[in-house]
């Protein structure tokens, strides 16, 4: 106990007989004083402190370095398998929307930059050298929850075969009713054998998405009924329905351009 501290105690003791000055208040004051003292001590820079800070900094640096090395290593090792897994995912999605084909479909990709900073990729599926169908992967930023991404397939004549939304962030139960193809199962039919319908009805039903089936690209762009078109949106999810329609229309325009270039349609 140093002298200053003693003085405080003496002070408190001297005033202790005043009615408003009880022991707990004095104690509180003493603690406050000690705290202030400690803070002062902490503010002082001593060589030991500087050494400690350096030690801490180097330790933290080492931890980060080790973590970064481990992450780099993991990234390097998994680069090729990750790419393969991603391609596998795309191929399985393409297999679902396209009729049977036997060419290396990923090599036919024709990427394109569209107005509005929208990237699209067109895949051509061939069976024994003959075109079996086209698939366009494209995104639409107009969704209610932001960007949505879709895969839409066409027959060689340019009619829509199948349409799936592969990525979206629409409101569950409202916007997602438009974008998701949902297989409705009940507990009664949970274990019953599932029958898969032949292409192009192999996917579960989607009320809005199925309306595009067998429309020709010549009739694009399509519109919702509320905007003067003939696509029925879902009430309460107009924005999601509109985004889906825009996405399909955009894909159709891309294919139309290609087919016109090749002289297959006028």
């Amino acid at each position: 106990m140093n002298t200053e501290e003693k003085n405080v105690r003496m002070d408190a003791g001297a005033n202790g007989n005043e009615p408003w000055m009880d022991v707990s208040a004095a104690e509180r004051q003493r603690q406050e004083y000690l705290k202030r003292k400690q803070e002062e001590q902490e503010r002082k820079v001593t060589p030991a402190k500087i050494r400690n800070i350096f030690y801490l900094g180097i330790f933290l640096f080492l931890v980060c370095a080790v973590a970064a090395t481990v992450m780099c290593f993991a990234n390097g090792v998994t680069r090729i398998p990750r790419r393969q897994a991603k391609q596998q995912k795309l191929v399985s999605a393409l297999n679902e929307v396209l009729p049977p084909y036997n060419n290396a479909i990923l090599k036919t990709a024709e990427s394109k930059e569209n107005p509005g900073n929208i990237k699209s990729t067109l895949y051509t599926a061939k069976k024994d050298g003959k075109v079996a169908g086209y698939a366009v992967q494209i995104s639409a930023p107009e969704g209610y929850g932001g960007k949505m991404e879709g895969l839409i397939s066409f027959s060689p004549e340019g009619r829509v075969c199948s349409f799936v939304i592969t990525e979206h962030s629409e409101t569950p139960g409202l916007g997602s009713e438009v974008t998701d193809r949902k297989d409705v199962r009940t507990f009664a039919t949970l274990f019953a054998e599932k029958k898969r319908k032949p292409f192009p009805e192999n996917l579960p039903p989607g009320k809005v998405l199925d309306q595009f089936r067998s429309r020709s690209v010549k009739t694009a762009p399509w519109r919702l009924r509320t905007e003067g078109g003939d696509i029925d949106g879902r009430s309460g999810a107009t924005i999601s329905s509109k985004a889906v329609t825009l996405l399909a229309s955009r894909a159709a325009e891309i294919l139309k351009e290609k087919l016109q270039k090749e002289g297959k349609i006028k």
């Binding site: 801490l56 330790f59 933290l60 931890v63 992450m71 897994a85």
Partner: peptide, 30 residues
């Protein structure tokens, strides 16, 4: 781990760990 920097250390360890798990899952368990 020194007491003063334990929180940053924990965060780095956990984040690195999760990233590695994320990468491995992406690659091998589709």
């Amino acid at each position: 781990v020194p007491g003063k920097i334990r929180i940053p250390c924990y965060i780095v360890v956990i984040a690195a760990f999760v990233t590695v798990v994320d990468l491995l899952m992406q690659a091998y368990t589709g």
